[in-house]
Write a protein that binds this DNA or RNA. Structure first.
Ligand SMILES: [Mn+2]
Ligand SMILES: [Mn+2]
Ligand SMILES: [Zn+2]
Ligand SMILES: [Zn+2]
Lengths: 135, 135
DNA sequence: AGATCCTTTAGATTGAGTCCAATTGCCCAG
DNA sequence: CTGGGCAATTGGACTCAATCTAAAGGATCT
């Protein structure tokens, strides 16, 4: 995704463009992936970028709030940000703590229960936990 | 659940009985609920119990490992322990950060995708995120 | 009693995430 | 241009769930 495309993307989602936001988006939106804030910060630093930790966190919160990326709470120790916003579900490989997208989008949930009164649906997450097969 | 029942429960799950473990189990297994370690610690302290923080954490880890309770990673800030181990799914009310069981157990997932090679299924979690209805 | 082994404990430490007050940078009115 | 206004950024202090450590406690056996 080119610098220009990213700029357009931010604007589409109602996010004011700044150089720091372009840098963070440039890393996360590069491909379908799940990255934690500290991983993004490390990648920025390796590139020689000087974006601060506070800004990385602020920016990811803003992106998630505006719907440009999706926050995932799976690993108990940190929040992952998903560059894919098209609805999809995940495998979580518990032995290695790694998250991957479910290729088959055909998962369907039958008999969705009635929601508690006064509430509305935000979204449905299916998380399939897998582990190494023990022979 | 009586003291004696809890004792039996621990033994069934291969957990050596100690007074601290009975106290922690006494609180968590009291009813179907989702509690974080610090909530359990606070409840113990209010009762005048002297179980240490380290023991509460050790104990909950042990319980989850042995299958007596289930750890849930939903709230990004802490781990909740579920006293219900019968397979079931959850609502997560994002506005108030509260977890509740889905009453209708009839949720069914169709078209479960093939697992990555060399892995086996551990379990499937469905998390339905809900929020206050905006009029 | 002593030896062995598991469990508990206080307190220090870790680390993701948040907060804050000061600074920077951008945009526009005069 | 110029400087006032305002959002965005920043370093560093701070929070707090969770973990670690090394010492003490407790049970069981001989
Ligand atoms: Mn957050
Ligand atoms: Mn844990
Ligand atoms: Zn994904
Ligand atoms: Zn539950």
């Amino acid at each position: 995704m080119s610098r220009m495309d990213i700029q357009t993307r931010l604007t589409e989602f109602g996010i004011a463009v700044t150089s720091q936001r372009l840098e963070v988006a440039g890393i996360l939106l590069d491909k379908p992936q799940h990255l934690a804030a500290d991983q993004i910060l490390a990648m920025l630093r390796k590139k020689g970028s000087r974006v601060s930790k506070a800004t990385v966190y602020n920016t990811l919160h803003l992106f998630a709030e505006k719907g440009l990326v999706r926050a995932l709470h799976v690993d108990p120790s940190r929040t992952f940000y998903d560059s894919t916003i098209h609805p999809h579900h995940h495998f979580y490989h518990v032995d290695i703590g790694e998250l991957s997208d479910i290729p088959d989008e055909q998962i369907r949930i039958m008999n969705l229960p009635p929601l508690p009164p006064g509430t509305e649906l935000e979204n449905v997450d299916v998380l399939i936990k897998i582990r190494d097969r023990k022979i």
